[in-house]
């Protein structure tokens, strides 16, 4: 009985700070004195950033092509409603499935690529899809596509989309958290840190990375679907635009790659800056570029990375704490090593 109760208490302790902070942030967003448009965008962009972070921060595959999933999500939602008359909930499901399928097909090309090859390989594919969509008459080619809104209940539309965004953001944050604490998550981080070592203990690098790619795509696809649902119109040069990727990348980089807290901080910072530079878009972009450089030079682990390093704070503890004494105290004592060395030495003489 005892260990069980301890485990449950520890589990509660692991979840409680995250739940509390997310609750407070959501409450702040809901009661923000503005219409729901901006909070919705914040939540969706945050969800997409966390989705990108799952792949780039935790699987170690830096993607420059996530705009493709956003666009595919939006287009498949629109087309399944326009052309096949599906109701919204089903259409959202279709959007998720189509994005996942897209990612799976891309994985055929990408699964052997690492580092820069992956980053730019996925970018080429994203560009390819953008160009193809721009040529495809059925989806409106370069003119884009309007969502036929006759079947939508437009009286509560804005509220509904807002709650969809809230739902997505919450599910993504806690879903990724739970995922990373599972065996899968541990394996994913192990392959990020060392492919060969992970493979030698039976963790298939390729398979867990492909899974991360597909889940990451799903998140961005749903984010894109809900975002473009809210504006009822999508075109290739917007939905598949690199600026989506830049936005997401900036948020995660500045907040802290490979942390669950980083994208929350990054999103907040991004939208504060965006509001401050509302009248000067070019300046805002210049500032983003400059920030990316400065962060890489002085704190490549991002703001949350620095905080976590200094204080050891984890709001979403993905690294499991060992029970009992801390890690440092459990390091093997030097004497054992010395003895082993002494025992080996004569053989080599």
């Amino acid at each position: 009985m005892m260990p069980n109760r301890h485990a449950r208490a520890a589990l509660l302790g692991d979840y409680l700070p995250g739940v509390a902070i997310c609750g407070a942030l959501l409450a702040g967003l809901i009661w923000l004195p503005s219409d729901n448009r901006l909070p919705m965008e914040i939540l969706l962009v945050f969800a997409m950033a966390q989705g990108w972070n799952l792949l780039s921060g935790y699987a170690g595959l830096l993607s420059f092509g996530h705009q493709v999933f956003i666009g595919i999500g939006a287009y498949s939602l629109f087309m399944s409603m326009n052309a096949f008359g599906l109701p919204l909930p089903l259409a959202l499901g279709v959007a998720g499935l189509v994005t996942m399928a897209t990612a799976a097909v891309m994985a055929l090309f990408l699964h052997r690529m690492r580092d820069a090859y992956f980053s730019i390989g996925i970018w080429v594919m994203a560009d390819c899809v953008r160009l193809l969509i721009g040529q495809w008459d059925w989806v409106g080619s370069s003119r884009g596509v309007m969502l036929e809104s006759s079947k939508l209940d437009l009286t509560h539309f804005a509220d509904m989309v807002f709650w969809l965004a809230i739902g997505l953001a919450v599910v993504v944050q806690f879903g990724v958290f739970i995922l990373l604490r599972s065996r899968f998550g541990l394996g994913l981080m192990a392959t990020r840190d060392n492919d060969v070592a992970a493979a030698s203990v039976g963790i298939g690098a390729s398979r867990s990375k492909v899974t991360a790619l597909i889940l990451s795509a799903l998140i961005c696809g749903l984010g894109g679907a809900v975002y473009y649902l809210s504006i009822l119109y999508a075109d290739p040069s917007g939905a598949f635009d690199l600026s989506w990727q830049i936005k997401i990348l900036f948020i995660v980089i500045i907040g802290g790659v490979g942390t669950l807290e980083g994208p929350i901080l990054g999103t907040a910072l991004y939208f504060v800056l965006q509001q401050a530079f509302q009248d000067n878009g070019e300046m805002f972009l210049l500032l983003q570029g400059l920030t990316a450089i400065v962060v890489m030079v002085f704190a490549p682990q991002g703001i949350w990375g620095v905080i976590a390093q200094r204080t050891g704070l984890q709001i979403f503890p993905t690294r499991r704490r060992p029970p009992g004494p801390s890690l440092a105290a459990r390091r093997p004592k030097p004497t054992t090593e010395d003895k082993a060395q002494a025992a080996r030495a004569p053989a080599k003489g």
Binding site: I246, I293, M296
Partner: peptide, 10 residues
């Protein structure tokens, strides 16, 4: 890569 990405935006 990220720093040169930033440079490209600039």
């Amino acid at each position: 890569m990220i720093a040169t990405m930033g440079l490209s935006i600039i």
